[in-house]
Simulated scan of single mutants.
Amino acid sequence: MKVKALLCAALLLAGCDKAPAPAQSFAGLGNDAADFAQVVPGKVFSFPDDHGPHDGFRIEWWYVTANLKDAQGNVFGVQWTLFRNALKPGPTQAGWHDSTVWLGHAAVTSATRHYAAERLARGGVGQAGAQAVPFNAWIDDWNFASRPGAASALADMQLKAGGAQFAYDLHLTSSRPLVLQGANGYSRKSDLGQASYYYSQPFFNASGSLSIDGKVYQVTGPAWLDREWSSQPLSASQTGWDWFSLHLDSGAQLMLFRVRQQDGAGYLTGTWIDPQGHAETLHNANIQLAPLATTAIEGRNMPTRWSLKIPGKQLDISPEAVNPNAWMNLSIPYWEGPVRFDGGVGYLEMTGY
Rank of each mutant, 00 (worst) to 15 (best):
M157N: 06
A10Y: 03
I139S: 11
G312D: 09
L292M: 11
T220W: 02
T294C: 03
Y168L: 06
R258V: 10
G52N: 07
P338C: 11
R113M: 01
Q38K: 11
D156C: 06
W241H: 08
G214C: 10
R258M: 11
L172Y: 03
P48W: 10
K160Q: 13
L248Q: 02
M302F: 09
K160F: 00
Y334I: 01
M302A: 12
D191N: 13
G270A: 06
S307D: 09
P291Q: 06
G73R: 07
Q24P: 00
A5G: 14
F166P: 04
A111I: 06
S307F: 09
A116F: 00
L292R: 14
F26K: 06
K69D: 07
R58C: 07
A107D: 01
W243V: 07
G28P: 03
R84T: 07
H97Q: 14
N143R: 15
Q261L: 09
T81H: 01
Y197M: 07
P333K: 07
G346Q: 01
T173Y: 01
I317G: 03
N325G: 12
S190G: 13
G352H: 07
A161S: 12
G52T: 08
L120Q: 05
E320C: 05
A34Y: 12
P202S: 03
L348S: 05
Q314M: 10
R84C: 08
R58D: 08
F144S: 04
P233D: 08
F57H: 09
S245T: 15
A37I: 05
I297D: 04
T100Q: 09
D263S: 07
M157V: 13
N286Y: 00
V78H: 02
Q232W: 02
H171Y: 08
D70C: 05
F36A: 09
W80S: 07
F257E: 00
G77E: 08
R58P: 04
T269G: 12
Y347R: 00
K215A: 14
H114V: 02
A23I: 05
A236H: 13
V322L: 15
R176Q: 15
P53I: 02
A21T: 11
S174F: 04
S152A: 15
Q93W: 10
W96H: 09
N85E: 10
H278K: 11
H283L: 14
G266N: 06
S250F: 01
Q314G: 06
P324C: 05
K18M: 08
A279Y: 00
L82M: 14
L12G: 01
A121V: 05
A106Y: 05
A5C: 09
A145F: 13
K69N: 10
M350L: 15
A5E: 09
P177D: 12
Y347A: 12
P20T: 10
G73M: 06
E118A: 04
Q238G: 02
N184A: 15
A10R: 12
N323I: 09
F45W: 14
Q158E: 13
P333H: 08
P41Q: 10
G264M: 04
D169R: 11
N301E: 15
W142P: 00
G266S: 13
G185Y: 03
H97V: 00
D342N: 13
I212A: 01
G163D: 04
N136H: 14
A14N: 13
S25R: 11
W61M: 12
Q181W: 02
A223E: 08
F257N: 00
